Amino acid sequence: MTEQTKSVDDTATERDATTQRRAVRARYANIATATETGCGNGGCCDGESAPASSARLGYSADEMQSVEAGADLGLGCGNPTALAALTVGETVLDLGSGAGFDCFLAAQQVGETGRVIGVDMTPKMVEKARDNVAKNGSRTVEFRLGEIEHLPVADETIDVIISNCVINLSPEKRQVFREAYRVLNPGGRLAISDVVMTATVPESVRENPESVAACVAGASTIENLETMLAAAGFENVEITPKDESAEFIREWDASLNLSDYIVSATITGEKPESGDATPE
């Protein structure tokens, strides 16, 4: 593997995964407890108010107005619920669910006969999301504390997995995709928004856990993601870069034009109808 395709998942032995997770957890705990509207500044956020930031990510005014204040933190790099094609009665799992914005939008689409589960590893964020359940009167949404590499979800119980700019934060992406495959029902699908690497991030940035926590240095290339998804068992994988995302990504860092190195993308894939819970 060349330096050009080197990603966080490939440098796990070089960086302490525990240190990386600690940095991610600390960053999002601070966001969860912030008193101002929005997410501050830095990767996965352009420093605007939450509604302004979410509008640039592809959320409609109707979507933002349909969820009570406090769930939309303006985080992410896309709108996974827009590409998930959710239907009434489906069970949805959100990886890295934050304060619950995408979960509440998904709940509207799957209806009273559906179910939505959010998993997040930051206790303060899970606490905030659970408070938002009551604010939104969402009887079909629940939030669980856990790591996306070790999902607190039973085998073959999920129809659709969504995620918004979270998998890039993991030092063990292969394990994330194996877990996603395990919990999906046969015929289930992924609908993910995330960042992908288009050029090598400077080493000083790549080796900084804070940069990984800010959705800057943790991206994998499209080729590596395709390989990991196929190894996990997924079929019909499609990864589509969104060139227009350069407009907000370049505002994630004042000292470095991040759009030279990463781009937002939609990532979709399917578990085969005959898929086993644990592929080889």
Results as ranks from 00 to 15, higher is better:
Gly96Gln: 01
Ala61Trp: 11
Ile192Met: 01
Asn185Thr: 09
Ser49Pro: 08
Ile267Ala: 02
Gly96Tyr: 03
Gly137His: 00
Phe248Gly: 08
Pro202Ile: 12
Thr91Lys: 12
Phe104Tyr: 13
Val183Gly: 04
Pro272Thr: 11
Glu207Trp: 07
Phe234Cys: 10
Gly233Glu: 05
Gly74Asn: 12
Pro186Cys: 15
Tyr28Gly: 02
Val212His: 05
Gly78Ser: 11
Ala230Asn: 06
Glu251His: 14
Ser170Val: 04
Asn79Val: 06
Ser97Pro: 02
Gly187Tyr: 13
Val160Ile: 13
Ala232Val: 05
Gly58Arg: 08
Asp62His: 09
Arg250Met: 10
Gly114Ala: 07
Val88Ser: 15
Ile249Ser: 00
Ala107Glu: 08
Leu93Gln: 02
Ala23Val: 02
Glu3Gly: 08
Ser211Met: 14
Thr5Gly: 12
Val67Gly: 01
Asp9Thr: 15
Phe101Cys: 08
Ala50Gln: 11
Arg22Lys: 10
Ala17Asp: 13
Gly47Ile: 05
Leu95Ile: 02
Ala107Leu: 05
Lys242Asp: 13
Ile158Lys: 06
Cys77Trp: 00
Gly114Pro: 03
Thr33Pro: 01
Lys124Arg: 13
Arg144Asn: 06
Val92Asp: 07
Ala219Gln: 01
Asp9Glu: 14
Tyr59Glu: 04
Glu223Tyr: 09
Asp194Cys: 00
Val195Ile: 15
Val24Thr: 10
Asp194Glu: 05
Val92Arg: 08
Thr122Ile: 03
Lys135Trp: 08
Glu156Ile: 04
Gly78Leu: 07
Val166His: 04
Ile148Lys: 07
Ser259Tyr: 01
Thr5Val: 12
Ala217Asp: 10
Ser54Thr: 11
Leu225Trp: 04
Thr200Cys: 06
Phe101Tyr: 13
Leu225Cys: 03
Pro279Tyr: 13
Arg56Phe: 06
Phe104Cys: 07
Gly233Gln: 05
Gly43Ile: 00
Thr140Cys: 07
Ala69Ser: 14
Gly118Cys: 10
Ser264Ala: 15
Asp159Thr: 13
Gly100Asn: 06
Ser7Pro: 01
Gly137Glu: 01
Tyr28Thr: 02
Asp94Lys: 04
Thr13Gln: 14
Pro123His: 01
Ala69Met: 11
Thr11Asn: 14
Thr278Met: 14
Phe177Pro: 02
Gly38Val: 03
Glu223Arg: 14
Thr18Glu: 11
Ser211Arg: 15
Gly100His: 06
Ala217Lys: 08
Thr33Gly: 02
Ser138Gln: 09
Ile239Glu: 01
Ser163Asp: 00
Leu256Cys: 02
Ala134Glu: 15
Arg130His: 07
Ala246Ile: 03
Thr122Val: 15
Ala254His: 11
Val126Arg: 02
Tyr181Thr: 03
Ser193Pro: 06
Leu73Cys: 13
Leu151His: 01
Ala61Arg: 11
Pro80Leu: 04
Lys135Gln: 12
Ser53Asp: 07
